[in-house]
């Protein structure tokens, strides 16, 4: 068994109790209602680690990614980068640190400026790092080769590339900042299966080569599982389980994870979000977020949201039914 990543004394990125709450007003005269996009999310990413975040759309996984990047202000909680608290740094103070974290987006058609050539797009990060002239061209070509593209792309416009090629270009642009962490927000979700595999392999290659940390956000447990060392499962803004990938697949400890694993038609794929047993927002306000859809819900589940608690080494789950023996998709070891 490949053991979990050895605990790092100072994780590269550490999210501490991150929450994002939006105020929503349903009517002109009603009181605004607080809607939590993410609630008390605590995560660490070690150097060279790929941490997957899975969840259906609206589960808050992208919100967490953007808060980690400081592209979205958290309502509460803290973001530590390299041991330093960057939660309250001004944009000015943050600028010199920004290069450490780069992001890859879901929609390949929106991630490259349509009015710039590839050369212009790739020059932007180099210029910000103060690399110019022959050095810049050299580095640009090396990076393009790394993501599997040739020098002929430089003069072309983004609109002339396929989705997979555009993701490669986005990755090249991110790499040119020499990041330590890449947040890949549904970076392969818009691609077809074959291209997905290529891009996932590319991420894996980059991790191995540069000891990059990757926060790999997705809704497809099978795809996220292929690349991630550990997986965090989110449901409606709450982190419900986090474990080393193999352990999560072998023995899920949260009923929602088990449900994801057993989802049809392909194992581990959320083809379409399953219709909730009760309308969204109808679960007991103080109870467990999953209580309304959970087949194992007990009375206690409707009164309070359990905290994320250790259930095995490196494995934490937010479920009080520790007695359950949930079915995974890998055979039980031992």
């Amino acid at each position: 068994m490949t053991g979990p990543v050895p605990p790092d004394p100072v994780p590269l990125l550490s999210l501490r109790g991150l929450s994002k709450t939006y105020l929503r007003r349903d009517g002109l005269l009603t009181r605004p209602r607080a809607v939590a996009a993410a609630r008390d999310v605590t995560l660490d990413i070690a150097r060279g680690e790929v941490l997957g975040i899975v969840g259906e759309s609206g589960s808050g996984k992208s919100t967490v990614g953007r808060m980690a990047m400081r592209l979205l202000e958290p309502t509460a909680g803290a973001v530590h980068l390299d041991g330093a608290d960057i939660t309250h740094l001004s944009e000015q103070a943050l600028r010199p640190l920004r290069h450490k974290m780069q992001m890859i987006f879901q929609d390949p058609s929106a991630s490259l400026n349509p009015r710039q050539s590839i050369r212009q797009i790739l020059t932007t990060p180099l210029r910000l790092r103060g690399v110019a002239g022959a050095d810049a061209t050299q580095e640009m070509l090396e990076t393009l080769a790394l993501v599997g593209l040739g020098p002929d792309v430089l003069g072309r416009a983004p609109s002339t590339f396929s989705g997979g090629q555009r993701q490669r270009l986005s990755i090249a642009r991110a790499l040119l900042m020499k990041p330590e962490l890449i947040v890949a927000d549904e970076a392969v979700s818009a691609l077809d299966v074959c291209v997905q595999a290529q891009i996932v392999n590319l991420f894996r290659h980059l991790r191995d080569r540069f000891n990059l940390s990757i926060l790999f956000i997705g809704h497809d447990l099978a795809v996220v599982g292929v690349i991630s060392d550990r997986i965090a499962v989110m449901y409606r803004g709450t982190l419900v389980e986090i474990a080393p990938t193999e352990q999560l697949f072998r023995r899920p400890r949260h009923p929602y994870t088990a449900r994801l694993l057993s989802a049809e038609p392909r194992r581990g794929v959320l083809s379409a979000p399953a219709p909730p047993a009760t309308p969204a927002g109808q679960h007991a306000p103080d109870g467990c977020v999953f209580s309304a859809r959970c087949p194992h819900a007990a009375d206690a589940c409707r009164t309070r949201q359990p905290a994320l608690a250790p259930v095995a080494p490196g494995h934490r789950a937010a479920c009080i039914r520790t007695d359950l023996d949930l079915e995974g998709i890998l055979p039980h070891s031992n």
């Binding site: 990047m69 592209l71 943050l94 600028r95 010199p96 640190l97 920004r98 290069h99 974290m101 780069q102 992001m103 987006f105 879901q106 929609d107 929106a110 991630s111 490259l112 400026n113 349509p114 797009i121 932007t124 990060p125 910000l128 986005s170 642009r173 991110a174 900042m177």
Partner: peptide
């Protein structure tokens, strides 16, 4: 709010 603008913001561009 387009991703290509966010990407450049995330680089710390002025």
């Amino acid at each position: 709010q387009m991703d290509y603008v966010t990407a450049v913001m995330a680089m710390g561009a002025p």
